[in-house]
């Protein structure tokens, strides 16, 4: 094999704009590649920055385009994609934001990134058929406490000490109310193909997380009550049902 540049050296130069282009890469006249190598550098940085901008539109809006582009440049060099499937690229963004000094004053930013990541996960999660609207009412009352619920693969829960849903909504929808400083727990369902994030009542996150972990309705209620008094079971179940998030109910002797 003849000498020449390894892909390791090519990659190193590609990701470091301060390095010169590798010497064995040339123009047709034999000159150093220079600007010609920069085409590849630019393709990598621009395409991954674009992917991150599409992935985190609210984070981008909150910090501004110019800042986001600079920050994406730091992120993509520290965390290049680990897979050519870019639909979920950026799973390390929340942790990155937690450690990125220039955004330390924006304490809510990592949770906004978590919410945007979960929305994308929900988009691409497996399809599922929700139960019929009256299926829950059809369960004999004596079987309710022991019933177990299977939830759609798109279902996600995010607990935050920040008003993460209100911040997301105020930056995504026209005329959304201004966020009030409080913690918010978010439920993401996917009725049809579009993820629908909603704020959960107190105790709702603990309740749904328990269901997801395989607890019965009675056990999940205990978890919810343990968190807060006055848990609104009816409102929480309604959010799940309206979001098409319940795909089957398992009672002692039947699966609905």
């Amino acid at each position: 094999m003849s000498g020449g540049i390894s892909q390791a050296a090519f990659t190193k130069a590609l990701l470091d704009p301060d390095r010169p282009a590798p010497a064995s890469l040339t123009s047709p006249s034999g000159a150093q590649a220079g600007k010609r190598f920069d085409v590849y550098r630019n393709n990598v940085a621009v395409s991954l920055t674009e992917a991150l901008g599409v992935a985190f539109p609210v984070v981008r809006k909150l910090v501004g385009d110019e800042f986001f582009t600079a920050m994406a440049g730091v992120f993509l060099r520290a965390h290049p994609p680990k897979s050519p499937v870019l639909m979920l690229y950026g799973d390390q963004m929340p942790a990155f934001l937690e450690g990125f000094a220039p955004v330390r004053h924006l304490g809510y930013l990592p949770d906004v990134a978590r919410l945007e990541l979960q929305l994308r996960e929900a988009c691409h999660a497996a399809d599922a058929r929700p139960i019929a609207p009256d299926a829950l009412a059809a369960i004999p009352p004596e079987d309710l406490a022991s019933a177990r619920f299977a939830l759609a693969p798109a279902t996600r829960i995010l607990r935050s000490q920040w008003p993460v849903f209100s911040i997301w909504q105020a930056n995504s929808e026209e005329g959304a109310p201004a966020p009030i400083m409080r913690g918010e727990d978010v439920l993401i369902t996917r009725p049809g193909f579009d993820p629908a994030p909603q704020c959960l009542p107190a105790g709702g996150a603990a309740f749904i997380e328990a269901l997801m972990a395989g607890a019965s309705l009675g056990e999940a209620l205990e978890k919810a009550g343990g968190d807060t008094a006055g848990f609104d079971l009816a409102a929480t179940l309604a959010l799940l049902l309206e979001g098409g998030a319940i795909t089957s109910i398992l009672t002692r002797d039947s699966e609905t």
Partner: peptide, 21 residues
């Protein structure tokens, strides 16, 4: 072309030297 090096996907179609190797 190539686009991945040691697990990092670079999202571009990168060039190759046309050698026997």
């Amino acid at each position: 072309a190539w686009s991945t090096h040691e697990g990092a996907f670079l999202n571009d179609l990168l060039p190759l030297p046309y050698t026997r190797a």
